[in-house]
């Protein structure tokens, strides 16, 4: 049963200390800024966060790290020109980093949502990121055993939801949203618009509502909509 939250604060209220939280977004595209701000305000700490990056500049995930709410981050690309809050926390030994190749990160999240106990991937074979992991040669090619990333919560951003929780996204802001929605026990989505059930064409729904627990509408500037866009 979908909960439609009145505010971002209400949407994230159940996130507790020590939770594992998947946070969508690739750079700022698809990053659920208002949900992250609400998570910071709610005060939950000792979080394990899974995101492609480790925050940019002085917004969103970067602020969670700045305020030392994140005990561990699982990501593929923490170091950027504007990742100064992560850099400072890391150099001070105040955040644990699990570095995962981007495709393995995505597949580990997907595996969790799909009930896969582990998988052999060629990515990383023979590199230092495979050290200590089980490997296998299959048909002459080397593979590394990777495990699913389960989570307590997912915070993601979509363009629209209906009142059943069916989601559509926008352009490259889709990125990790669909797989994170499936991998978490409790998925919280911020959207630009909530429409009546039946208004979204079932053929264009990207994330079926079965994966979504809570949605909240965030008033923001409307994205520029192009004529290519499927916009039912």
């Amino acid at each position: 049963m979908l909960t439609i939250a009145k505010s971002a604060q209400d949407a994230v209220a159940e996130i507790h200390d020590g939770a594992t939280v998947l946070i969508g977004g690739f750079g700022n595209a698809g990053q659920p800024m208002e949900l992250i701000d609400a998570l910071l305000a709610c005060g939950a700490k000792d979080l394990t966060v899974v995101n492609n990056n480790a925050g940019q500049a002085d917004a969103g995930l970067a602020l969670l790290i700045k305020e030392r709410k994140v005990k561990k981050i699982i990501c593929s690309f923490p170091r950027q020109s504007d990742s100064w809050h992560f850099d400072a926390a890391y150099r001070a030994g105040e955040i644990e980093l699990e570095l995962v190749p981007q495709g393995n990160l995505a597949e580990r999240i997907r595996a969790a949502g799909a009930g896969i106990g582990g998988f052999f991937t060629p990515t990383g074979y023979g590199t230092m990121l495979a050290e200590g992991k089980e490997t296998r040669v299959i048909d002459g090619k080397g593979y590394v055993l990777e495990s699913p990333i389960y989570a307590d919560f997912a915070l993601i951003k979509a363009l629209k939801s209906d009142k059943t929780g069916n989601l559509v996204y926008r352009k490259t802001a889709r990125n990790f949203g669909p797989i994170m929605a499936a991998a978490a026990k409790h998925t919280i989505v911020q959207v630009n618009e909530i429409v009546e059930t039946g208004e979204l064409d079932p053929e264009v729904i990207v994330t079926p509502g079965i994966y979504v627990d809570t949605v909240v509408k965030i008033d923001g500037k409307a994205p520029a909509v192009t004529e290519h866009e499927v916009n039912q």
Binding site: P78, R79, R91, L97, T123, M128
Partner: peptide
């Protein structure tokens, strides 16, 4: 992806996936 310098913060992104894909 990494110079291996001891003080460098490692970041891999999609490099390993691209190399094998």
């Amino acid at each position: 992806w990494h110079t291996g310098a001891p003080d460098a913060i490692p970041a891999v992104g999609g490099a390993m996936d691209l190399a094998t894909g």
